[in-house]
Simulated scan of single mutants.
Amino acid sequence: MLPLPTGEFQAYLFDCDGTIVDSMPQHYTAWRETLDQWGCAFPEDLFYAWAGRPTADIVAALNEQHGLDMPLETVVARREARFQQLLPTATGIPGVLQHIDDAHGRIPFAVVSGSTREAVTASLDALGILDRFDVLVCAGDYARAKPDPEPFLRAAELLGVAPRSCLVFEDADLGMQAAAAAGMAAVRVPQPRQG
């Protein structure tokens, strides 16, 4: 099981993609296939560096970087639809699922994600664990994305738990920075591709 920092935590806050669900390969495939329609390069190392950024922010950044004018809503909708098609091939991250099973019913859980609510709900539903989460904080539920602490602070507020009493499960650098900025303890979830 994934080792946790010491402390008495009153809530667990989980990133979704790459933390609960090993869905990053499916996300990357959906991005590549969608962006190919516009001839837009999105190297895999940049994709992982930008993990946790909302989809709309990524499209805007790629447009700026490549001097393109990809239509935001169209790209987001096509990428989302392709991800949904690929989602059944994603699996759960065992070390994290064990903590969810172990602590469910004892302390509240939230998902804090840069993905859309639709993608998060579909991912958790695919694993049969959607009902275990008291709160979902997704793209559109906050003004400033990770590495800003706002998404994690919003989840703590919705759960009614002080930030210092929350433990964050996160796989991405932006998320680890956001947790630290929120004053929360965090455990890094190693990516299967890194293992």
Results as ranks from 00 to 15, higher is better:
Leu127Ser: 03
Glu80Ser: 14
Asp102Lys: 13
Leu127Asp: 04
Val75Ile: 11
Leu136Pro: 09
Leu68Phe: 00
Ala56Met: 09
Leu130Thr: 05
Phe133Cys: 10
Ala77Arg: 12
Asp57Lys: 09
Pro54Glu: 10
Ala90Pro: 02
Gln98Glu: 15
Glu73Met: 08
Phe109Asn: 03
Thr121Ile: 02
Leu86Ile: 05
His66Leu: 15
Val137Pro: 02
Thr91Phe: 08
Gln85Asp: 15
Val137Thr: 05
Asp125Val: 02
Glu80Leu: 11
Arg82Ser: 04
Arg78Gly: 05
Ala81Trp: 06
Ala90Trp: 05
Ser115Ala: 15
Ser115Glu: 03
Ala56Lys: 10
Val120Ser: 03
Leu127Asn: 11
Ile100Cys: 10
Ile93Tyr: 08
Glu73Thr: 11
Leu136Glu: 02
Thr55Ala: 13
Met70Leu: 09
Glu64Trp: 03
His99Arg: 14
Thr74Pro: 06
Ile129Trp: 09
Val137Trp: 07
Ala60Leu: 11
Pro54Gly: 01
Asp101Val: 03
Glu64Cys: 07
Leu62Ala: 01
Ile129Asn: 02
Leu86Lys: 03
Leu124Phe: 09
Asp134Ser: 15
Glu80Arg: 09
Pro88Leu: 12
Asp102His: 15
Pro54Leu: 04
Ile100Pro: 11
Gly67Arg: 04
Asp131Tyr: 11
Leu72Asp: 04
Thr74Lys: 14
Ala60Arg: 13
Ala77Met: 04
Met70Glu: 02
Gln98Arg: 11
Ala61His: 09
Ile100Asp: 10
Gly114Gln: 08
Glu118Val: 11
Thr55Leu: 03
Arg106Cys: 10
Ala90Cys: 13
Ser115Trp: 09
Ala61Thr: 12
Arg117Thr: 01
Leu136Val: 13
Ser113His: 08
Ile129Phe: 10
